[in-house]
Every structure is written in structure tokens, then in C-alpha cells.
Design a protein around this nucleic acid. Structure first.
Length: 262
DNA sequence: ATGGTCGCACCGCGA
């Protein structure tokens, strides 16, 4: 079974690339972030052409998440659904072939002194509560997405550039560690002790050619899935411009691919 | 040469 997370930075701009990638890689579940489109304008028919259906939680201009599957997803839950007044579409969950898949576009946080930063901290705490109230660590569960948090100095090239910022500081690492402490394991780290492998490179400043990246896109799994953990890899080629004009532009994130023995 | 980007939507904001 193959489960993937990919921040596509606009599904409309990335449509041809994602379609071609789906046809080639055939994941069982693809979690998408930053759709930047309302649900009514999501290109369902395009994905049906390559054998996928989608459940979406979109909004205009910003954010937006979806799960694409071959088989019908079960028990779809939209958002954190915790009673908090929150207009930002950042979470979607569904059971796919017996695995609970939760895909999130975690808040970036802006800067430490912006009002977006406390929202990020609160959102991370709300997600921990979500796991506590709806799930238990004995389930077969994958929490994946663009976490906008790097967990370790190995997961960035230029530590001095990022340390203390919104993507890598004691506070946000602690909040994501709280998610792990609920009963999750970083599947990528489980199989790759070495660093230097990244999932996001800023569009600015020639970050990708310099490989000035961060590993902020994660697939966390519960312990019952550890025994089925086969492979995790980052498809770095998808950060590169493609050959065909229509699908040439790349997202600033690469897909991260989890393969389970099941 | 010490900068350098995207996407959206409307020219500024978010990343």
C-alpha cells in the first residue's frame, strides 16, 4: 500500500503534473495541500480520467486539502471539527483500505511576532486533542502533510538560517513532539538516519539549485504500522521543471511517498 | 553580479 503527501501549491496550476504523476506512481492515497480552490471548482473529472476520486476541503485563494484514492474512502471527516470558529481549510481525514489517513496543511506561522504564530501553536495543540478524542494509537493510522516544522538539524542544510524561526524552534518542535508522543513515529526518519534529504525548497533565492531545503513534509505512523514499514522516499524530481509545457512548473514542495507491506 | 519566486487576484499578501 502506498500513501503520499504533496503540497502542490495550487491544484489548478499543477493539474497536469499531478495527473501524470498519479498515473505513473499509482498511490492508494494521495494527500494534497494548498489546493487554493473552492470545493465547487475542484477538477474531479480530470482525476477520474486516471482512476482517482477525491474528497476535498477547499477554500478560495488559500489553504485547502484533499485526499485522492482509487477506492472509495470511508468515514470522511472535514477539518478539526472542534467547535472553534476557524475559516481555514487545513485538515481532512478518511479511512482508505483499512488505514486511517489524516492529511494536514499545518499553519506556517508567518513570523514569530505575527498573529499567525500563536495560531500555529494553537492549531498544533488542537490537532493533538483531535487525535486524543477521535483515535487511539493502536489503530492503523497515518498523519501526514505539510507540517511547516522541521524536527531536527539533519533536516536542513543551513541550520543557522532556520534555527529560531517559525519552521524550526524549540516551541514548534515541542508541539509536534507532543503529536509523536501520543503514539506516532516519523516513518522517514525510521528508515533514514542520515540527514540532507529535504521536501521543500523556497522559490526565492535559488534555494533548489543550492539544495537549501528543509524536510517539513512528514508521514507519521502509529506503531502497529511499524512492522509493515517498507520504504519512504522523497520524489525530488517533482521539484524540477518538467518537459511538457503544460505541466512544466513545479511546486516548491516534493511529494513524500510511504510504502507499506499490506 | 552578493540578486535571484510563485500563485492568487487584483497590485498586496501569503509562503
Amino acid at each position: 500500500m502506498r500513501i503520499v503527501t504533496w503540497n502542490v501549491n495550487s491544484i489548478r496550476v499543477r493539474l497536469q503534473r499531478v495527473k501524470a504523476w498519479l498515473a505513473a506512481e499509482q498511490p492508494d492515497a494521495l494527500c494534497l495541500q494548498e489546493l487554493k480552490v473552492e470545493d465547487g471548482a475542484f477538477p474531479h473529472a480530470e482525476f477520474e480520467e486516471v482512476g482517482y476520486r477525491a474528497v476535498t476541503h477547499g477554500q478560495k485563494t488559500y489553504n485547502g486539502v484533499a485526499i485522492l484514492t482509487k477506492d472509495e474512502p470511508q468515514d470522511v471527516v472535514i477539518g478539526l471539527d472542534d467547535g472553534v470558529d476557524d475559516s481555514q481549510a487545513r485538515l481532512i481525514a478518511a479511512t482508505v483500505n483499512g488505514v486511517r489517513v489524516i492529511g494536514g496543511y499545518f499553519p506556517n506561522g508567518g513570523t514569530l511576532d505575527s498573529d499567525k504564530y500563536p495560531y500555529k501553536l494553537a492549531w498544533l495543540s488542537r490537532l493533538r486533542k483531535y487525535l486524543e478524542t477521535r483515535h487511539n494509537p493502536e489503530e492503523d493510522l497515518v498523519l501526514c502533510g505539510d507540517f511547516n516544522v522541521a524536527m531536527d538539524e539533519r533536516d536542513m542544510k543551513n541550520v543557522d538560517k532556520w534555527r529560531g524561526g517559525v519552521l524550526f524552534n524549540e516551541e514548534v518542535v515541542g508541539r509536534v513532539q507532543d503529536l509523536l508522543d501520543w503514539g506516532l513515529v516519523d516513518s522517514f526518519r525510521q528508515l533514514h538516519e542520515d540527514g540532507g534529504m529535504f521536501s521543500w525548497w523556497d522559490y526565492r533565492g535559488l534555494s533548489f539549485p543550492k539544495n537549501d531545503g528543509l524536510r517539513i513534509d512528514h508521514l507519521f505512523i502509529t506503531k502497529p504500522l511499524l512492522g509493515q514499514l517498507k520504504n519512504v522516499r522523497i520524489d525530488r524530481d517533482q521539484r524540477k521543471k518538467g518537459a511538457c509545457p503544460e505541466g512544466s512548473k513545479a511546486s516548491d514542495h516534493a511529494p513524500v511517498i510511504l510504502d507499506l507491506d499490506r
